[in-house]
């Protein structure tokens, strides 16, 4: 990449292994790499990628948070690795190389989860393994890491994974709260007993959990509502026919 013209004032930059003029670690451009995927270029609500796992694991908040962290680790690491060896990868087999890198990282994450968070790992079951096929991971490798330096790729990976995780957590928050009246397993709306008389909190007033929220289509509904709100706040996102 060409050096930023604004930063030419800095004299004699310390060049380690990248032959380009030094840019502050968190320059405006780099910060945008982090913040863009959170809103204007969100992987789920704008690019509509990674919907599959967003539907499957967002019944509860805890697995969603673990999933978000797992995807963040995989994306950041794979982006950095691919970016470091981007000039060594033959163009024709680059997808296979990327797959091998992502697969190795996913297996690592899976083993760590099994060792330290066995319950959550069981709940997530196949979906940790399926991070390999998450379009966001491969998409960012192809679109960004192959053409940018490691630091920028790292930020891009963190940013996109955060954008993905943010939506996951929002969806899971509403699904767990409305669907089972809990947050992270705590009964925030009161305890539901066998009868109304034995219940506490909202349940004592006749409140009932919303069974629809436990079904997968509810995740689509919540994602749809988020897209609706986001687009009515940010009109630039609306496509023109």
């Amino acid at each position: 990449m060409m050096a930023d013209t604004k930063n030419k004032k800095e004299k004699s930059p310390v060049v380690l292994f990248v032959a380009e003029e030094k840019e502050p670690l968190f320059s405006k451009k780099n910060r945008k790499l982090l913040s863009d995927p959170l809103n204007d270029n969100n992987p789920i609500t704008v690019q509509v990628l990674g919907i599959c796992s967003a539907l499957a694991i967002t019944v509860q908040l805890k697995p969603s948070i673990v999933m978000a962290i797992a995807v963040m680790v995989v994306m950041a690491a794979s982006n950095v690795i691919v970016s470091l060896i981007r000039n060594l990868i033959p163009n024709r087999i680059r997808i296979i190389v990327q797959l091998v890198i992502v697969a190795a990282l996913v297996i690592l994450v899976n083993e760590v989860l099994k060792a330290y968070a066995y319950d959550v790992s069981k709940e997530l079951s196949v979906f940790v393994g399926l991070i390999i096929t998450n379009c966001i991971v491969m998409g960012r490798l192809e679109a960004f890491a192959l053409g940018n330096g490691p630091w920028k790729s790292f930020l891009d990976g963190i940013g996109n994974a955060a954008g993905y995780g943010l939506i996951l957590v929002i969806v899971a928050f509403f699904r767990e709260l409305l669907g089972s009246g809990k947050l992270l397993g705590f009964e925030v709306l009161g305890h539901k007993g066998a009868t109304v008389a034995e219940s506490t909190g909202l349940y004592a007033m006749g409140y009932e959990n919303n069974g629809l929220m436990l079904l997968s289509p509810a995740a689509l509904l919540v994602v749809g509502v988020i897209i609706w709100i986001q687009r009515s706040r940010n009109r630039e996102l609306i496509e023109k026919n």
Partner: peptide, 10 residues
Amino acid sequence: AFAFFAYPTF
């Protein structure tokens, strides 16, 4: 349909 799937017991 919403009520049917959300509150099946009712």
